[in-house]
Nucleic acid binder design. Structure first.
Lengths: 152, 152
DNA sequence: CGGCAGTAGTTCGTACTAAGAACTATGTAT
DNA sequence: ATACATAGTTCTTAGTACGAACTACTGCCG
């Protein structure tokens, strides 16, 4: 198996599929007037509020990078900072009403588009793929940068 | 199946797995003193030279974005522009010797890291995953942003 | 042949991303 | 009380990405 010159190994498959997902994500963000990073920020905050450090850990950014990202999101009215009651150094970042609404819309649109990428697979293959990717996500402790639509 | 609250749907699986792949790609790039975009540029050019327009199509960038990316790669001695013999408007972008060497190293390191992401899967699951991702890549005509290591 | 629409690339201005180093303020342990 | 660690911000530097306006060449149509 695998000699036809038209099938990929796992590595190339993962990288190229990621490229597709990124492209779709970017397109979706653009449609809603967001950058990819802003879209990611909103999607993370859909789950719960985060402190800046947590947020940096989740998004894989240095704190110095995050300040600006959050600043710009605040300027756009998508997000706000609240003092952490238990630690006066710390801050909680959370969605505003407007941010929440935009996040939901962006999230739904992105789900639709990503789902379309897998439109060629039948439902059994989709399940198989979901299980395999789920294993990778779990094995590597991927942060919750995107919620599961099928909220359990 | 799928009620435990710990398994993902295809969409969340794809998005989170992509996040992992991006992180690994970025880490790899950083190790070689590259940005992600520069790494991507090198990987694309490993396959063959490209004109600026082709390159933009493949990387999903506007031509105005590409000029700078290529400029910086030229400044670092990784890439050069050659006049297209058949069209005096056009340009071929190709790897220099140094760029080729760096591309090979970066590519190999990235393959290793991405492969590690799937280290938890047995060989049958890896084949299955490769086949499913391959189908998505093909269905969506993902550009050749990353070669297959197992060159057929 | 001559003009002219389209294509290939670049330039310029604007906004955003990302990192590290230096800094402030608060918390924690001793 | 001192001393060290943690949470965030500021500043600087480099790179990314886009659209609009521009130059130069190609190809076509009459």
């Amino acid at each position: 198996m695998g000699k036809s010159g038209e099938d990929l190994g796992v590595v190339a498959g993962l990288v190229r599929a990621s490229f597709l997902v990124n492209a779709v994500y970017a397109e979706s963000a653009r449609e809603y007037g967001l950058t990819v990073q802003q879209g990611q920020l909103l999607c993370v905050l859909m789950g719960r509020p985060y402190g800046m450090s947590d947020l940096g850990g989740t998004l894989g950014l240095e704190k110095s990078s995050l300040t600006g990202l959050v600043d710009r999101a605040v300027r756009r009215g998508l997000v706000r900072r609240e003092p952490d009651p238990d630690d006066r150094r710390a801050v909680q970042v959370l969605l505003t009403a407007e941010g929440h609404e935009l996040a939901e819309d962006f999230y739904a649109a992105t789900c639709r588009r990503v789902d379309d990428l897998a439109a060629g697979l039948d439902s059994q293959d989709r399940d198989r793929l979901a299980a395999l990717l789920g294993a990778i996500v779990r094995d590597n402790e991927a942060p919750t940068v995107f919620l599961d639509a099928r909220q359990p």
